[in-house]
């Protein structure tokens, strides 16, 4: 109940910040000094948010598709040889700092949205891949045996049994990826990508805390709402997969 109220408030606050930023002028004024502007106006907050979300959305979609395909591949007989390597890469790869991955993408890609997209994509692969692997390798053996015994083909088993049952765990991986990407994308503005990081950096450069708080607040609210949306999706899919007993 309280959680629901809190989420509604978060959504309302986010909408207000994006659609009528001027109405918050007096709220942010105490954070400024020397008559600095309290609200970031160089680019509209809404446009930055949309571009931020687009960047994250594209990267997360791409990494989800590639990582799920990869997870399926290494759990098939044809790709099983890659399993030990894939496991090690995912556990070691996740220790790579996202900022360093972003910085390293710049020499290869130049400045702009490109390196940010590549870094988010690469970094986002790991959680989804790891969860896909876990989910596909821990399915109930009796269900798989029954599916084979009833004459489902490999493809039918994958699409009708394995993926639907693995979905909740895969979604948890996508949630992790989405939340990390949302935060990392702000750093993309240091390499000239259009994201909410632009507002924060403008605040850092002009020593205007109002901008820093604005950028941080919007990104934080987005993260909370996306996290929550994914959790709903997960429990819905777990319920559909018959994995959770209704209380």
């Amino acid at each position: 109940m309280i959680a629901k109220l809190f989420l509604t408030l978060a959504a309302a606050l986010l909408a207000a910040l994006l659609f009528t930023p001027e109405s918050f002028t007096e709220v942010f004024r105490p954070l400024t000094h020397n008559n600095a502007p309290p609200i970031y106006l160089q680019t509209s907050l809404l446009r930055l948010t949309l571009s931020h979300l687009a960047l994250v959305g594209i990267a997360v979609t791409a990494s989800t598709l590639v990582a799920v395909a990869g997870g399926v591949l290494v759990t098939r007989p044809a790709g099983r040889e890659f399993l030990p390597l894939a496991r090690t890469i995912t556990s070691v790869g996740q220790t790579f700092p996202p900022v360093a991955v972003l910085a390293l993408a710049v020499p290869a890609m130049g400045f702009g949205a490109g390196p940010t997209l590549v870094a988010l994509f690469l970094y986002g692969l790991l959680p989804v891949f790891e969860n896909t692997l876990t989910a596909l390798s821990t399915l109930p053996p009796s269900v798989l045996e029954a599916a084979r015994g009833m004459g489902l083909t490999r493809r039918q088993r994958l699409w009708q049994v394995e993926l639907p049952l693995a979905l909740p765990v895969i979604l948890a991986g996508v949630r992790l990826t989405a939340v990390i990407s949302l935060a990392t994308a702000t750093i993309g503005s240091t390499v000239a990508a259009k994201t909410l990081g632009e507002v924060i950096i403008a605040g850092l450069l002009s020593a205007n805390p109002a901008f820093v708080v604005q950028g941080g607040l919007i990104t934080g609210l987005l993260a909370i709402l996306i996290y929550e949306a994914f959790q709903r999706l997960e429990s819905w899919s777990a319920h559909r997969a018959g994995l959770i007993r209704p209380q």
Binding site: V179, L182, A183, T186, I187, S189, L196, G197, I200, I201, G203, L204, A207, P209, V212, V213, G215, G216, L217, T219, G220, A223, I224, Y227
Partner: peptide, 12 residues
């Protein structure tokens, strides 16, 4: 949930 860039910035 606060992005690192903002948290670092607001500490100043």
């Amino acid at each position: 949930t606060i992005p690192s860039l903002a948290l670092f910035g607001i500490m100043i």
